[in-house]
């Protein structure tokens, strides 16, 4: 994973699309599917994950010299769990209505493989700056994926987006979308869309490369 000459912009941008934690790496799905029945919940969950990921990456990369490798995983887990507790209480105090909706799923951020994975494979090996940038990229990518999923499910399943009524009162909602099967099906179809787009991009790039070869 560590590149020879890490480029901050590259590190940031890769998490958004190419290495998107959800669409490309299929990580961190447990909390994601459960809470994305509306865009607001998705935003809140994404925001909470954002905070935990960035804060943990920062702390881990700044403490990496003092953490012996034998206990590194345990230490990461403690750090992550701490920040999850912090965001849990903060949400409960600041946005109680949303906290009630997300309920039991906030604590589950602890076992989001994506967060632990970033600590192990990136933050513990890079400078603070890079680690934070990487975490930012991944977190934004995660947030984006959650929002996409939450938007589709909310728009079809409720006729609203972020609580805004989109189709007027006569819309017949597709209830399945806010139910568990809708989560599975939507994410499956979004993954399909992602790989279709990725393939199209790759084909386009190949065609461009060919044209360049011909041009020279």
């Amino acid at each position: 994973m560590p590149t020879s000459k890490p480029d901050a912009y590259q590190e940031f941008i890769k998490g958004l699309w190419r290495d998107n934690p959800v669409f490309a790496q299929v990580l961190g799905m447990c909390p994601m599917l459960a809470v994305t029945n509306s865009a607001v919940n998705a935003l809140a969950m994404g925001g909470a994950t954002f905070f935990v990921l960035v804060a943990s990456s920062f702390l881990v990369s700044s403490l990496k010299r003092w953490i012996p490798k034998q206990v590194r995983i345990s230490t990461y887990v403690i750090i992550i769990a701490t920040f999850v507790t912090v965001i849990d209480y903060s949400l409960q105090a600041l946005l109680p209505a949303i906290h009630k909706e997300l309920g039991a799923f906030i604590p589950l951020i602890v076992v989001n493989c994506m967060i632990l994975g970033r600590q192990e494979s990136f933050a513990s090996r890079h400078s603070i700056g890079l680690a934070v940038i990487d975490a930012l990229g991944m977190a934004v990518g995660f947030l984006f994926a959650l929002l996409a999923l939450g938007s589709v499910r909310e728009i079809l399943g409720n006729g609203t987006w972020l609580g805004l009524d989109l189709f007027g009162p006569n819309f017949e909602p597709w209830v399945i979308m806010v139910l568990p099967p809708g989560g599975f099906l939507t994410l499956g179809l979004l993954l399909l869309l992602f790989s279709w787009l990725a393939e199209r991009r790759q084909k386009l790039a190949e065609r461009l490369a060919e044209m360049e070869v011909e041009g020279t």
Binding site: M1, L27, W66, I67, K69, I73, I78, G117
Partner: peptide
């Protein structure tokens, strides 16, 4: 997912084995 995430490759940054005391100390500090 866990493979790519947890990356079980051994990070051999530390040169010598730290003592148990240090491990416990680290965890307690954390």
């Amino acid at each position: 997912s866990t493979d790519s995430g947890l990356g079980l490759q051994s990070a051999s940054r530390q040169g010598r084995e730290p003592t148990s005391l240090r491990l416990i100390l680290t965890l307690s500090l954390a």
